[in-house]
Each structure stands twice: as C-alpha cells, then as structure tokens.
C-alpha cells in the first residue's frame, strides 16, 4: 500500500487498477462523515482533479485524484452508509478504483513508514 501527502492510500490491483481511499488519520481528522459524492464510472480524471466530495457534520472536503486515469468502479455502499469511511477507512470505506497506464507510477508515493513519519 502506498500513501499520498493528502492522506489517501493507494493499493495496486491486477490489470493496472489502483484502489483509492483515505487513511485512518484523515478519517479521524475529518470527523463523522455523513455524505460522500463519488465520481462517475468511466470518467477520465487527471492528477489533482476533485473526484470525491466528503461532508462531515462540520464541513465539506474534497478528495483529489492522486493519479491520471479512468474511474472503473466506485464504492456504492458509501452512498447509503458514508460512516463506513470512519469505521473501516482502509477496507470497506474505499472510494474508487482507477485504471492507470503504468502501475509503476505508484513507486513515486510514500510507503507506510514514510507516511507515518509524514503525519508524526
């Protein structure tokens, strides 16, 4: 698993797919998540695009696309149960799967130790 400076986690899957979610640290900082707006399937997104909107009781926040690619799947369970992001951010609370051209792009991101240093 790899991590971005914006507190997203990236997990490489087969077929150049990457699953994206937010870290426990980010979920805790955001507080109780009450609404998640997910991207459209088949949307082409570029690094830095706003792809997910998260609303907590307090405020709205954006999740930016960490990579260039095509959205191939979203976690529809979050629409009915956005609290999954707080309960299981690294598992059932994932946001979307994106198809990249070259899975080697993940090498540029932090590993777990580096991320732990980043939030320390």
């Amino acid at each position: 698993m790899k991590f971005t400076e914006d507190h997203e986690w990236l997990r490489a899957e087969d077929d150049n797919l990457v699953t994206v979610g937010i870290t426990e640290h980010a979920a805790k900082e955001l507080g109780d998540i009450v609404f998640v707006e997910l991207p459209e399937i088949e949307a082409m997104v570029a690094h830095g695009d706003e792809v997910v909107v998260i609303e907590s009781v307090k405020a709205a926040s954006d999740i930016l696309a960490p990579l260039d690619g095509e959205i191939v799947e979203v976690n529809a369970k979050l629409t009915e149960n956005p609290g999954l992001v707080n309960q299981d951010p690294l598992g059932a609370g994932w946001f979307f799967r994106i198809r990249v051209d070259d899975i080697a792009v993940l090498d540029d991101f932090m590993d777990e130790d580096e991320y732990q240093d980043h939030i320390a």
């Binding site: 507080g31 109780d32 009450v34 907590s56 009781v57 307090k58």
Partner: peptide
C-alpha cells in the same frame, strides 16, 4: 473545544 475524542456525532 470543538470536539472531544468521541466526535461530534457521538
């Protein structure tokens, strides 16, 4: 204090 450990919802 905006919230404590349990969070706003709790």
């Amino acid at each position: 204090p905006v919230q404590y450990e349990p969070g706003v919802m709790a």
